[in-house]
Design a protein around this nucleic acid. Sequence first.
DNA 1: TAGATTGTTAATCGATTAACAATC
DNA 2: TAGATTGTTAATCGATTAACAATC
Lengths: 207, 207
Amino acid sequence: MAKSEKISEAVVRRLPIYLRYLSYLQQVGVATVSSQQMGKNLDVNPAQIRKDLSSFGDFGKKGIGYDVNYLVEKIRQILKLNEEIRVALIGAGHLGHAISNYNAHVEDYMRIAAIFDNDPAKCGKVLAGITIQPLEELVETVQRQKIRLAIITVPASAAQSVANLLLEAGIEGILNFAPTTIRADRDVRIHYADVTSSLQSLAYYLT
Amino acid sequence: MAKSEKISEAVVRRLPIYLRYLSYLQQVGVATVSSQQMGKNLDVNPAQIRKDLSSFGDFGKKGIGYDVNYLVEKIRQILKLNEEIRVALIGAGHLGHAISNYNAHVEDYMRIAAIFDNDPAKCGKVLAGITIQPLEELVETVQRQKIRLAIITVPASAAQSVANLLLEAGIEGILNFAPTTIRADRDVRIHYADVTSSLQSLAYYLT
DNA sequence: TAGATTGTTAATCGATTAACAATC
DNA sequence: TAGATTGTTAATCGATTAACAATC
């Protein structure tokens, strides 16, 4: 049964991984899957998968496993991916290009709805079907378009000031690619995706 | 004193964050820093910083704090960033462009030494000063140039076969941007940096 | 000396995993 | 029924934090 206990970050990080594999199973027409099989494919302990899922409800059938379609639906619900979520992208450099173009291909309920850059030469240009706007228009645009998440791909030196604008606009979550820590004066979810740090920690494991 | 106990992944993930802040302090000419001050700036518990660092040695001075230059040097040593580490980039799409150009600016001991793509139209072209090579040349090039780490920025459908080539070439660590799990038949460090998963888990925290 | 801060221990907190009764 | 697999408990493992003696 669904528990009222707090869901840990580790669980939330794994759900998208489960969802991805389940979507794949949908595509290849597999109707049912066991925690055993999922664990084998995703390198996750089957007991952990069962525990993760059971904290949201009884999704499986004893002796059978999980119905793929049903589980996809449930995980989408949990991750709030069953309604469109609008995302702002700030920084139309190489990384911003990569993300906006990539995103255009994903048949997801996440949609990049606005792109901002402080370079006047870029403003007015179109990227992945969206006209790049100056930072001055960020607060108003985010609020008007009900944008809830933001992806920061500006240089480290500009990340905090961009974050301040986003906070002012009422953003609910930030994915920060800039190699710097962001301080927030109110409750907001900030995730980090810094290539340099990832590479550096990888170097530690060199023999 | 330096412990022989196993260093956890969590510690290794934090070291680059410490290093980044300490490098900043170097730049602005600060000679000494306390765990208190570091913690405040990086949103990390000061006790944790002290514990993390003390597992590698006695780097601080009681009553004083840490010498910034010395600590930078030590963390570089721990992360093996004091000798040049050559990196291969596979996938010269938008994301590959972003990373190779970004990397060109970093005065780091990590250097992208070779770039590969399976698109014949791209091979032979130059990106960030490096000529793009076909995948057929990957194994030989990686071994000859003593490349130890790799960044995968190909589509999910190609990621596993690229990883297989890298494993065959003897690569020691992989940073995978493709939205898929990679299976390895031998011991190799694989880190994931998947934008879609990061965004999806961010969505969970929407109110 | 007095104040500050480390290194480290012990306590706490949280996450993972093994095991198994329930049951399809 | 026999075999398979869930959901859940309890055990284990690991990571974080508070507290403080040591000492600069």
